[in-house]
Computed example of a mutant assay.
Amino acid sequence: MPKKTIKIVVEGGNVKPGPPLGPTLSQFKLNVGEVVKKINDVTAQFKGMTVPVTLDIDVDTKEYEISVGIPTTSSLLLKKANAQQPSGDPAHKKIGDISLEDAIDVAITKKPSLTTKTLKSAVKSILGTARQIGLTVNKKDPKEIIDEIDQGKYEDILSKYEEKWTKV
C-alpha cells in the first residue's frame, strides 16, 4: 500500500479548496471539501497564523491522516501582540508590546522545535525574535529583558513556569 505525503503551509482555520491544494487532493481522488474542512477544524486554534500541515495519504484506500505542526515563533508573537505583521524597521518602529509571561508561553509552545535545554534559554531566544519583529516586552526593549534575565531578576517568574516546561 503506497503512501504519499503532502506538506503544506496554511493559514490556520482558513484553508480554501482552490489551487494549489484542491487539484493536488483531486489527483488522489479524495473529497476535497471534506479534507479542507478537516484541516480547518484541526488548525482552528491557530486562526490567522501560518501553520505547517502534513497530509499522509494511503493511495489505495484513500484514507489520510492530518498532522499539524507548530506555527512560527513570529506568528505566535504577533498573535500575542495583536499585530498583523512584523515591523519593517524594528529598531525604530515598534508594532506592539507583550508581557514576559507571553514570551514564556510562546517558548513553552515552541519547545518541541527548539534546541535549547532550559526554559531560561528558550525565553531568551523568543525575546530575540520579538526584538527582530519590532515588539517590546513589558514596555522595554527585549534586549534589556534578556540582560535582566541574565542578572537573575526574573527567577521567580521563570520558576513558576518550570514545571509546565518540563511536561512538554
Rank of each mutant, 00 (worst) to 15 (best):
1 M>T: 08
1 M>I: 13
2 P>W: 08
3 K>Y: 08
7 K>T: 11
9 V>K: 14
11 E>K: 14
15 V>I: 15
18 G>N: 15
22 G>I: 09
26 S>Y: 10
27 Q>F: 11
29 K>H: 02
31 N>D: 14
32 V>F: 10
35 V>Q: 01
44 A>G: 13
50 T>I: 14
55 L>D: 04
55 L>S: 10
62 K>N: 09
64 Y>A: 12
65 E>Y: 05
76 L>T: 01
77 L>Y: 08
78 L>N: 09
80 K>F: 02
81 A>Y: 01
82 N>C: 07
83 A>F: 05
87 S>R: 07
88 G>W: 08
91 A>T: 07
94 K>Q: 10
98 I>G: 03
99 S>L: 04
100 L>R: 03
100 L>T: 05
104 I>Y: 00
106 V>G: 02
110 K>Y: 02
115 T>S: 12
117 K>Q: 11
118 T>E: 06
122 A>P: 07
130 A>I: 11
134 G>L: 08
140 K>R: 11
141 D>W: 12
141 D>N: 13
144 E>N: 10
146 I>P: 05
147 D>T: 15
147 D>A: 13
149 I>C: 03
157 I>T: 06
159 S>G: 07
162 E>S: 05
162 E>W: 09
163 E>T: 13
163 E>G: 13
164 K>R: 15
165 W>P: 06
168 V>F: 06
